[in-house]
């Protein structure tokens, strides 16, 4: 296999690091692998708790479906201490995946479809809407890739981020997994990837180390 490992795509990754990571895992919130919030409440209540604790007045939050709320909150915590000044918004990309697409919202839309189809629910039946919500919130105008996979796999995420970095002028990538099955079964993890020599290297083992999703 002449093409098994090509220096072309490993070379550029040397300078890239995981600046921050946040995971929300069925009521537990981890920042850079450390538990920072724990609740017994289901997502309906937990999302309100997290919004109060970590977000500012942002009325659009309450219009979002559960999947977008989960992605939005994860990004709020991920970026809360990150200074976005002097950053080119056109070069902040999002690479996000999940397994259940928008199944929870699809079933909610099905109910409205049988009575009065709701455009406000229908618009959330695309998984990349959560990426759009994060972009609107923070003004990110970079590249977007939303992928679907059977389960969260750090190697797949790494590959997708690496491909994007190699093939664009992106400065920062917010990459990860946002998956919502029901208010008692949901998981998300987002990593902020950029060129920052003080942070741990952008590598599969570091993505794994920071993650409790099993």
């Amino acid at each position: 296999m002449e093409d098994a490992i090509q220096p072309y795509y490993s070379r550029k990754m040397d300078n890239w690091s995981i600046i921050n990571s946040v995971e929300i895992n069925n009521g537990k919130v981890f920042a850079n692998g450390r538990l920072v919030h724990d609740t017994e409440n289901d997502f309906t209540l937990a999302s309100k708790e997290l919004y109060k604790k970590y977000s500012k007045a942002y009325i659009k939050f309450f219009k979002m479906d559960a999947l977008s709320k989960l992605g939005f909150l994860t990004a709020e915590i991920l970026l809360k201490d990150f200074n976005l000044e002097n950053i080119d918004m056109n070069e902040i990309a999002l690479v996000v995946g999940n397994s259940n697409a928008t199944k929870d919202t699809d079933l909610k839309y099905l109910q409205t479809m049988r009575e009065q189809p709701s455009p406000a629910v229908f618009v959330y039946t695309l998984p990349n809407i959560l990426v759009g919500e994060i972009c609107i919130r923070h003004g990110f105008k970079g590249q977007n890739v939303f992928y679907i996979s059977g389960k969260f796999d750090e190697e797949e995420l790494y590959e997708n981020i690496e491909l994007l970095i190699n093939n664009s002028t992106t400065d920062y990538v917010i990459g990860g997994w946002v998956d919502f099955i029901n208010p008692n079964d949901y998981k998300s993890i987002l990593y902020l990837i950029g060129k920052d020599s003080k942070s741990s290297k952008f590598a599969i083992n570091n993505l794994k180390r920071l993650n409790n999703i099993k």
């Binding site: 090509q6 697409a101 695309l126 998984p127 809407i129 890739v145 992928y147 491909l163 190699n166």
Partner: peptide
Amino acid sequence: NRPRLISNACISGVVALMYAQWQLKEGRYK
């Protein structure tokens, strides 16, 4: 190989072609 799946609203098809081009131009697949 594990199939890759892109679901990015109405740009999905263009993204899938872009993604496949990335994979091939780096020589990961032929």
